[in-house]
Write a protein that binds this DNA or RNA. Sequence first.
DNA 1: TACAATGTTTTAAG
DNA 2: CCTTAAAACATTGT
Length: 267
Amino acid sequence: MPELAEVEFYRRQWDPGLYQKVLSVEIHAEKRIFKGVNKDPLVEALAGSRLISSQSRGKQMLFRFSGDGWLGIHLGMTGQLRVAGRGTVAGKHDHLVLRQERHTLIFTDPRCFGRVRFDQGPEAPAWWQRLPADILSRRYTAKTMETFLRRHGALSLKGGLLLQSGFPGIGNWMADEILWRAGIHPTTLCRSIQHESSRRLWKCLRFVCREAMRRIGSGQDDLPKNWLFHQRWNAKGICPKHGLPLRRETIAGRTTAWCPGCQPGAS
DNA sequence: TACAATGTTTTAAG
DNA sequence: CCTTAAAACATTGT
C-alpha cells in the first residue's frame, strides 16, 4: 500500500520497540528482499543492540540501532511493518523478525518487491544522505519541481510524478490525486506545462502531501470523502466534483484515473 | 482463466 | 552519459 504517508504510518508501527533490546533476529535470507545485503553482519549486529530511532523520507525508511547499525527498509508494493506480542510465530511472508523482550517487530511482504539494506557506521549511510529533499521541506521549492520537469520534458506528467528522484514519496494514487486537483490531463508532457498550471501543480502537490501526512493513520484517520482516492479504485468511480464517470487508462505503465471534465486534454 | 495490483530495477533503444 | 518505454520481478485476489 505504501506511498508517502502510508510509509510514515508503517514506520511508526515499530515505535513500541524503541529503546529496547533486540534479543534475536530471524530472516528469510534467500528472498530477493535481501538481495545485495550482507546478511551475517545484519543478524550479528542487530542481535543484542537497541532500536534507537527511525525516520522516513519519501518511500524510504531508516532504523537506527545501537552499535552503529542502520537498517533501511523499502516496502515495495505490498510490504508492511507491524508489531506483535512476544513469542509470536512468524508467518510465511514475515521476512524479517526482530524479537524483543515484550514485542516482535515484523517486516512482512507477500510480493517481495520490498527491500532491506544494512549499513554500519557512526553516521547514516551514504544512500540515505543522498536522497532528494522531502517535498514538504523548505528545500523543495517550485523551482526544484520546474527544473526537474524540464529535464524530463518528453515524459508525461503522470510518468514524471512517479519518479522518486523528483517526487519522493509520490505513487500511483497520489499522482492521480494531484493531477486531478490541478486540473491537468495525465498525458500532458512535462515540458509543455505553462507557468500558471505549473504553479497550480506545485500547490496541489504540497497540499496532497501535507493533508495525507496529517490524516493518514491519525486515529480519526481517513482522507476526506471528496478526494479522488475513494473513487479511483473501482471501475464505476465518479469525479467527486462533477459526478462524471472517471476515465481510466494505462499511462506511464500504471492504471491512471482522471476526470475528463476537470482534466481536459488529449485522448 | 486471465488480468490487475498504492513499485522499483533491468534491459534496450533513441 | 542521459532519457524513455517496456518487460521483469512474486504473489494474491477478483
